[in-house]
Design a binder for these strands. Structure first.
Lengths: 140, 140
DNA sequence: CGGAATCCTTTCAGATACTG
DNA sequence: CAGTATCTGAAAGGATTCCG
């Protein structure tokens, strides 16, 4: 028998509930990668929710051309943005948030707010843990 | 000059805002990993927010002993749960959510709700994209 | 300008074996 | 029972080069 809990499938066994990895996980893992949210955020605050490639690259400290391309392709594939290609010389490409794309960040706000609130506690917990386990500097 | 936007630091340049990777990112990336949320969820629905190692292992389909240990250590380090060790033979270890740990999932609910709502659109966007780019089956 | 292709290094995760 | 240690293959991320 399969039930649903917090939107996740699980089966009830004689030992208790048993959870399965579920589909929406990969949206969350995408948001957890290094550049995705920064990219979305930059587009979200841009006029018209639209920027050209070099503007995005310029707006994110440390991102390489390759990683930006990869990130943009993922976002395009999932329908969070659309790519507008202008075959001029030199070529120009603009990326524009879709409606779904712009609705994502506000939905995430609640959680990022929680993180900001609790961040000091987390850092303190890490320091305590690292001391007790005699780790040398910033273990993972 | 450094400002804050959606809780993120950025500097204002003559070319526009420039975002930096920020600290809270690593909480999000932890939640995006394969087992963390499942582990938290299982503890959250357990009586007393408390389970022993083998019970958790049993409750998550496909997790290995090693990955559960790693996941639990991370969560412990960040202060989301505490480890109770009973030096019996055979040994017994129980993991218990902290208050911070139990407050995390509800905070995430808004976003997981958004994901569930939009999941069909995302899947459709992927199909369309993959067709247009003549990809064979489930590109990344 | 905006990539794609390639190479390389680091990290991650699964499998397996051993231990207090 | 609840780990740790070790190995391996896979994946992520950066650097560099080339191209329409």
């Amino acid at each position: 028998m399969v039930n649903t809990l917090h939107g996740r499938n699980y089966e009830q066994t004689e030992l208790g509930p048993r959870l399965k990895p579920c589909a929406p996980h990969d949206v969350l893992s995408r948001m957890g990668d290094k550049w995705t949210i920064l990219t979305l955020l930059l587009l979200a605050i841009a006029p018209g929710h639209r920027l050209r490639f070099s503007a995005i690259k310029n707006g994110i400290e440390g991102i390489t051309q390759r990683m930006l391309t990869v990130t943009l392709r993922h976002l395009e594939r999932d329908g969070f943005l659309v790519r507008h290609y202008f075959p001029e010389v030199p070529p120009r490409v603009e990326y524009e948030l879709t409606d779904m794309g712009s609705s994502l960040l506000p939905a995430l706000e609640g959680f990022t707010g929680w993180i900001r609130e609790h961040w000091p506690l987390i850092e303190e917990a890490r320091r305590t843990f690292d001391e007790e386990h005699h780790r040398r500097a910033g273990g993972k």
